[in-house]
Design a protein around this nucleic acid. Structure first.
Lengths: 215, 215
DNA sequence: AGATGTTTGTGAACGTGAGAAGAAGGATCG
DNA sequence: CGATCCTTCTTCTCACGTTCACAAACATCT
């Protein structure tokens, strides 16, 4: 019960661990067995001190004078991230974005198979997308339970986002990735992350303007 | 030359301004003329103190005892963000994701019209997508210059991302949004932002696991 | 076996951002 | 015209994250 399972991982570290993981998998497929913090920093695009501090939080898994064992480190990061076993995902909204996400093979190979796809439009329901049949939005709860989905993706227009989030929570999903612009409110017990493309473009435009100003 | 144009806007504020902007535009379309920091905080999903601090950085545009004038504030935020005039965007990669982005109407209405779409696959070149003809990747520089594109979006597989970024820079683009996973390196003079879907899912899975652990 | 070089791990300083509290300005009501 | 209330604006404090610096551990070479 008081096992030292994972002693408080900072949010900033959590955000970097997947990047390390991807780099490590790449290295492993190249046959690399041992990696230094310097090398890992290079493939992850951060500095070496940061890598060491992040990895030291998981535990002292490195050997001084040598580095980190790639395969072992992959397992440890997967364990901390909760990605040891595949995590099933349901996508709400089978429009252009929803379909693009479903077709993207990187999710399945990364341990996040898309297991459900629902939409409210009668013209789209029943279509086959990436090997999955689009189910009616009303069947969301059934789809989630039958496929043991634990992650939900909102790929609908902004107007529907809030009610979709509510229904996902109602279906037993507590981790949601939202692509729709605008505000979505969830209880504190639910993790909601947002991918806001318009905001990203605005931020780029800001820096672009700063650049032009300094010429 | 030493005009007090925009006195150092913190990065965290820059990331929130687009959210305020969207909320303000919504309010304006509802006929609201004046808004308090409390109201704006509600529609933006942050707390009021944060809103006030962010807005005070732009200038003292609020009236005490009253609030902020919606239309005026919209103009000011657009000015600071460099979104006064439309900013043309070029998308590299007309696969599922690139097409989904091109079809998404929110960009154009938000002041970011998609003006170019290029791909390297002969089967895709020449297709009409969202009213735009897909041009060959080799024509990137021409497309960028003819349409005065200043923002580039990478929507290609990971393997091509680095060389696409290089070509975008070569074509005169200094602001890039990258959807491809993996590391892309750019000179310091270029702004690169990354939308990493796999990382987002990993972060959600981490919190999901934390949740299960505390049960 | 000893010395040297390499790499991890950790403690301290620095900078940034968030939150709280108080001061100042403006409107409204009597 | 004065008092009260509301809202912005500013300053201070605190927490978080990053960077820097150094000590500890391991390997290698002589």
């Amino acid at each position: 019960m008081d096992e030292v399972s994972t002693p408080l991982v900072p949010e900033a570290t959590v955000a970097r661990l997947p990047v390390y993981l991807r780099g490590l998998v790449d290295l492993a497929s190249d046959g690399v067995e041992t990696v230094s913090s310097e090398q890992l920093a290079a493939v992850a695009g951060v500095n070496a001190e940061n890598v060491r501090k992040d990895l030291s939080i998981l535990g002292s898994y490195g050997k001084r004078g040598v580095g980190y064992e790639v395969d072992f480190l992959i397992e440890q990061i997967k364990r901390v991230l909760g990605a040891g076993d595949p995590v099933s995902v349901v996508i709400v909204g089978a429009g252009n974005l929803g379909r693009a996400l479903a077709y993207y093979g990187g999710f399945a190979s990364g341990g996040f198979p898309i297991k459900g796809l629902v939409d409210s439009s009668p013209e789209i329901i029943g279509q086959e997308v990436a090997g999955i049949t689009v189910e009616p939005f009303e069947e969301l709860k059934d789809v989630v339970q039958k496929n043991s989905c634990t992650l939900g993706i909102i790929a609908t227009p902004a107007a529907a986002a809030q009610s979709v989030a509510d229904q996902l929570i109602n279906a037993g999903i507590y981790s949601i990735l939202n692509f729709a612009p605008g505000l979505v409110t969830v209880p504190e017990s639910v993790t909601l992350r947002k991918v806001d493309l318009a905001t990203e473009l605005h931020i780029l435009a800001f820096h672009e303007q700063q650049r032009e100003r300094n010429e």
